[in-house]
Amino acid sequence: MSPYFSPPGGLPPQTQLMTGRAVFTEAYAFLPRGVFSDIVTSFLPGWTKTRLWVIARPMTGFAETFSQYVMEVSPGGGSDAPDPETGAEHWLFFTTGLATLTIDGEGQELETGSFAYIPPGCRWTLHAEGSAPARFHWLRKLYEPAPGLAAPDPLIIAEADIPPTPMPDTQGRWATTRFVDPADLRHDAHVTIVTFQPGGLIPFEETHVMEHGLYVLEGKAVYKLNRDWVEVEAGDFMWLRAFCPQACYAAGPGPFRYLLYKDVNRHAKLRGPGAFGPPR
């Protein structure tokens, strides 16, 4: 059994009551696991035996810096040309299954708990090799270079090989699994796993500049999103725009864990000349 939740797909029966909790606001979006049905899957050119759920994409009033897909690649499926966006960087996190990822001619097997970072400009392919579908999160962002800094190197690592870093003064109840060094300013975004033990909490309203994407991998909690407290569980997704207040209380009997995206380490972009008339 995988410790990470993956959408099972399918369709609800016609006898089911409509009791969903999906919310889309100007400050946040909440997509509960029940929306991940067969009817909302997508397909991509260049991918075979593959379907996906698009849970974040750049658009007005929603995700501004990234896209996120929940991928399901059947045995023998995959792609030799995954993404035509040459300036994109990629993060992959596997929740179940087996696949071979090849980056610039070097191949490596990815399995449950594997994480990969693919810098912009790399040539890469991915093919499902197991007897069951390979399921993984695929996050994409246009890389923002910084003066004097080279692009990061490719990375393939397993979550199990990284000791979580506890937040100070939390007695280990709140910790983050960091796949890259947060002091490495070559990276313009971080994808990490955050873990709360039962009773762990964010005891204040985080209100800061990063855009957030949170996919719940395991457990349950109540999460503060702007003005609202929302019950969340494994399989739910939350998007928070910059400065959206957030807090958390892990209320379940086991660990509460989520895959977290946030943009970091770059200047806020300013509007170009002429946005408010000619310079004075």
Results as ranks from 00 to 15, higher is better:
S79N: 07
G113Y: 03
L126N: 01
L126E: 00
A88I: 00
A189D: 04
L17S: 13
I193K: 09
R227D: 12
P58S: 11
E89T: 14
P45T: 06
S6A: 15
K224P: 01
F30G: 02
T176A: 14
Y249I: 15
P279E: 08
S67H: 01
G9Y: 03
D83L: 12
W124L: 12
T176P: 01
R241W: 00
Y258V: 07
P253H: 09
A27Y: 09
H137A: 10
W91C: 11
T112Q: 13
H187K: 04
Y215S: 09
T60W: 01
G272P: 06
L142K: 09
P32K: 03
R173D: 07
G172P: 07
L110F: 14
E218M: 11
L92R: 06
Y215T: 10
A99I: 05
I103D: 00
A234M: 04
L52F: 09
A250R: 02
A158L: 11
G105W: 03
W124R: 08
D83I: 12
F43N: 06
I103Q: 02
R123H: 10
Q108V: 14
F243M: 11
H208T: 06
E64V: 08
L17K: 09
G77Y: 05
R227W: 03
M71G: 09
G61W: 07
L214E: 03
A234G: 06
L240N: 08
P3C: 09
A63F: 01
R280C: 08
E85S: 13
M18L: 14
W239H: 15
A189L: 08
P133H: 06
K141G: 05
V73E: 03
A234W: 02
G78M: 04
F179V: 14
L201F: 07
P245C: 09
A128V: 04
T102E: 13
Y69M: 07
P255K: 14
K269M: 15
L44I: 08
M59Y: 05
K141V: 07
R140Y: 02
D104R: 10
W138P: 00
A251G: 12
T207C: 13
D188F: 05
E218W: 03
D80Y: 03
P13I: 05
G121T: 04
L31K: 01
D83A: 12
P133I: 03
L126M: 12
V264A: 15
F204C: 11
A247Q: 04
P279T: 09
E26T: 15
E109C: 02
Y143F: 15
S42H: 02
T207V: 10
V73C: 10
S131N: 10
T192E: 05
E85T: 14
T192R: 03
P255G: 11
R33L: 05
V216P: 00
H127K: 15
N265P: 01
T50Y: 06
F36M: 11
I103H: 02
I193C: 11
G34K: 03
F115E: 00
L214G: 00
F196I: 03
A22V: 10
V191F: 09
F179P: 04
G113Q: 04
T60E: 12
A251W: 02
W229I: 15
P147M: 02
